[in-house]
């Protein structure tokens, strides 16, 4: 017997029997696959309400569980079956937090391609809702640090500080956070490519331009890496941004 959305059932709850006799009737072969019942210890209805009260999550209650989002999702289809946006919304509305917590290691994998939101027949902003669920979980201390959160914070910090981002800084800064030792010049404390401990692909990728690229393009990027491009008149706005983020609890 096929189990619909088998990824939702833990392997230890699936029992397959060689021979099964129920009330004197031998049902082996057709009905020998059993799913043990799930025990729900606790639920928290406030969780769904809290998601509903965020500006991104306000469409969560329009969901009628058709699973079009899951069927469209590239992460579900090509990477990990356990990533299932329909199920996340279901769990959040029922407030089954421990079940959500079991899936927190895949929940961050959303690549924001918005196929789910685009195709939803009920007008749920699925991608935003999933991110809102994650945010609420993080606020309650249920979701720990995961790679994309680290990167998002790193990126946002750069935007808030300078008003603009710089690709070289992002790339090398991220690699440094991954545990590589990036060589920095002693005066401006900026990373210098080619020297130090960088991944092999990045070394090759940065060596290639030397041979074939326009010199002015290389100089432009080197200049940007040394002197971060900035937005003028940014300081006053930066204060407001920081204040708003402080209110949202986004700074820690």
């Amino acid at each position: 017997m096929a189990i619909h959305e088998r990824s939702l059932v833990e392997p230890e709850r699936i029992v397959r029997k060689e021979r099964l006799v129920i009330d004197g009737v031998d049902v082996s072969g057709d009905w020998n696959l059993l799913i043990l019942p799930r025990v729900i210890n606790d639920y928290d209805l406030d969780f769904g309400k809290e998601v509903l009260n965020t500006p991104e999550g306000k469409t969560i209650n329009q969901c009628y569980q058709c699973s079009y989002c899951t069927a469209s999702c590239p992460i579900h289809n090509y990477w990990d079956e356990r990533y299932n946006p329909r199920h996340f919304i279901y769990l959040a509305r029922l407030g089954m937090i421990d079940e959500l917590q079991k899936r927190v290691d895949v929940m961050w994998r959303c690549v924001s391609c918005h196929k789910c939101t685009h195709r939803c027949p009920k007008g749920v902003l699925v991608e935003e809702v999933i991110k809102a669920i994650l945010k609420v979980m993080a606020k309650r201390g249920l979701a720990e640090e995961y790679p994309s959160k680290k990167f998002d914070k790193f990126f946002t910090e750069s935007v808030v500080e300078y008003g603009r981002i710089e690709d070289g800084e992002l790339l090398f800064g991220w690699i440094e956070k991954q545990g590589y030792k990036v060589f920095k010049d002693p005066i401006l404390k900026k990373p210098i490519p080619f020297v130090g401990d960088t991944p092999e692909w990045l070394k090759q990728l940065t060596m290639k331009p030397i041979k074939s690229m326009n010199i002015d393009f290389l100089l432009l990027n080197a200049k940007h890496m040394l002197f971060h491009p900035k937005t003028k008149n940014w300081n006053k706005f930066k204060q407001v941004l920081r204040k708003v983020m402080q209110e949202e609890g986004a700074l820690h």
């Binding site: 965020t54 500006p55 998002d152 990126f155 981002i165 941004l241 983020m245 986004a250």
Partner: peptide, 11 residues
């Protein structure tokens, strides 16, 4: 971009 919106909505 797609990064900051995961950190702060109003921002």
């Amino acid at each position: 971009a797609m990064e900051s919106k995961n950190v702060t909505f109003m921002g």
